[in-house]
């Protein structure tokens, strides 16, 4: 909710107000929100690290992880950060056509990643790792699921912003809205780098 709220709530940028810090209210709020999110993922990652070796029943992580597959989907997600940067830079130049194009590509890449995650989850469940199977199962699905939800919310925000820009109904500074979604998007990507390293690459 905070993410849908913060990026449009402030009206100030259109007026060219000076704030005490020089940062706009929206951007400061987004940074604070992301700071808070660090602790959220910190808690989830700690829980996973505590429980990753605790497999009372069901498959062990090393048996089910398909690292080449996940590497490809991770690459897709990281590339979406690049397209996001292109979208922000187009928005700052006031190029609506390119902004829309890059937002679409970013959303598609994000959706591809989510598709990969859905495929991965169904494969794991077929191989016997249910949500309740073991502590590893519960903490794995919770951590990666939370990240997946964040990506999905990002995709929804990207698509909504595109629709709103196209209809000319945006209520704030267009470039700033895109930039704020970009901040969120990069944050979610960075979190994935950490998750990918800790969950998949470091053997438990």
């Amino acid at each position: 909710m905070a993410e849908t709220a913060t990026h449009t709530a402030d009206h100030s940028t259109e007026h060219g107000h000076e704030t005490s810090t020089g940062l706009t209210n929206n951007k400061l709020a987004m940074w604070l929100f992301l700071g808070s999110e660090c602790l959220l993922f910190g808690g989830l990652i700690s829980t996973y690290m505590l429980y990753r070796g605790r497999v009372s029943s069901g498959p062990h992580p090393s048996r089910i992880f398909d690292i080449p597959f996940t590497s490809v989907s991770s690459f897709v997600l990281l590339m979406s950060s690049l397209t996001m940067v292109l979208a922000v830079s187009s928005a700052q130049r006031g190029d609506d056509r390119r902004t829309n194009l890059w937002l679409t590509v970013t959303a598609l890449l994000g959706a591809t990643f989510i598709g990969g995650q859905v495929y991965e989850f169904t494969t794991f469940i077929r191989e016997g790792l249910g949500f309740s199977t073991s502590l590893f199962g519960s903490s794995f699905y919770t951590l990666t699921g939370f990240h997946g939800v964040h990506v999905s919310v990002g995709v929804i925000m990207l698509l909504s912003t595109m629709g709103i820009i196209r209809k000319g109904k945006i209520t704030g500074n267009k470039a700033e809205v895109v930039e704020l979604i970009g901040l969120y998007w990069h944050f979610v990507d960075i979190v994935w780098i950490i998750i990918f390293t800790l969950v998949y690459l470091i053997p438990s």
């Binding site: 604070l32 700071g35 808070s36 660090c38 959220l40 989830l44 829980t47």
Partner: peptide, 9 residues
């Protein structure tokens, strides 16, 4: 800001 996310988890 920094303690609420932990109880959220």
């Amino acid at each position: 800001v920094f303690s609420l996310p932990v109880i959220t988890v």
